[in-house]
Design a binder for these strands. Sequence first.
DNA 1: GAATCCATGTAATTGGTTACATGATTCA
DNA 2: TGAATCATGTAACCAATTACATGGATTC
Lengths: 191, 191
Amino acid sequence: MTATDRPFGLNNLAYQILGVVTRLPRSGYDIVKQLEHFRPAKTSQVYPTLSKLESAGLVSAEDVEQLGRPNKKVYSATEAGRQALIDWIGTEPEAPYSRDDFLTMIYSGWLASPDEVRVLVDGKIVRLDRQIAQMQSDIARLVALHPQEMHDPGHWRFYRNSLLNRRLMVAQAERVWCLSLLYQLSGATDD
Amino acid sequence: MTATDRPFGLNNLAYQILGVVTRLPRSGYDIVKQLEHFRPAKTSQVYPTLSKLESAGLVSAEDVEQLGRPNKKVYSATEAGRQALIDWIGTEPEAPYSRDDFLTMIYSGWLASPDEVRVLVDGKIVRLDRQIAQMQSDIARLVALHPQEMHDPGHWRFYRNSLLNRRLMVAQAERVWCLSLLYQLSGATDD
DNA sequence: GAATCCATGTAATTGGTTACATGATTCA
DNA sequence: TGAATCATGTAACCAATTACATGGATTC
């Protein structure tokens, strides 16, 4: 399925933004911050996408005047927007795309010394540990504040929790792999 | 670090291609096939990138005439190309980028019925199982054919094996998560 | 006084996909 | 006879990043 085959020609980012404003109404600025950890996008991509969604009638904007801060537009999903999301969920997801410098570096790790690769992997473990700690505290906070919603698949927090757990599990698996690589590298000395 | 900060202005794809032809000399067509499972790219992106690498002196091309097939250009890394890769491995990798329709759909799964989400997750498990079986057979073949290279961090097959194992571990973790989500969903009936 | 937060956007460039163009050989 | 494999490229378009532009309020 190509972008132009999809209803309204929406891409992954558009559906992600639509999903965000269906959970809770938000400004463009808030959407960018919300996306940061899960599916990062810059303002230069988010604002035009919001305009597109609005002219397609999938979101509606309300002007909110503020004191001491710039005014903002708060976007929420329309009924048509909700329905477009539900319809999309019923279609085949495209193959995921990813680009990872760390893995591309590992790919050619045999050219460098084991010590250089160790440094690279150590750095990765540090970043993974930070992410793991963050996700664990996010999960703890979520289940403490909204315990009953964690069991209700009709509530968005059920899926927020589920996706946080998924990222945590994947990060932990990546961490185990890093350690196993360091172990295999430990047999080799650097001269 | 932006693309223009990097030496020669190479991006992730350029370094990946450089890594491929440093392992073994290959044609553009072969490179595309080689990349398929690990870091997919189309011919329309690979051929121009090869030209760029060649004019930067990081790869060299040899014309090979063939009988019964179109002639081809076989690319290999130059010494400068090897060194550019090693230098890059010593720099900080940029944050990985990824885009995943399946996860974006799950994000808004609360809007759909539990049954619709089940179908989505079932499909994901099928795809994961196929990938897991493929990786397991790739790994088995690799260790059977080149057992001694599996322990040598100075050989590229050591890292091929390591990266295959990583993908396998991550896919298995994803699979476990899928099953746990199906289990949590099984409490909910569809009306 | 400098940095960060809030807030919305546009312009230029790079990265990636789809579609087009060509043509022989092999396999079902 | 039709599809797949081998083989190299270009043109048009869509997706994403970087840089630019503005400006008040708060925090260090």
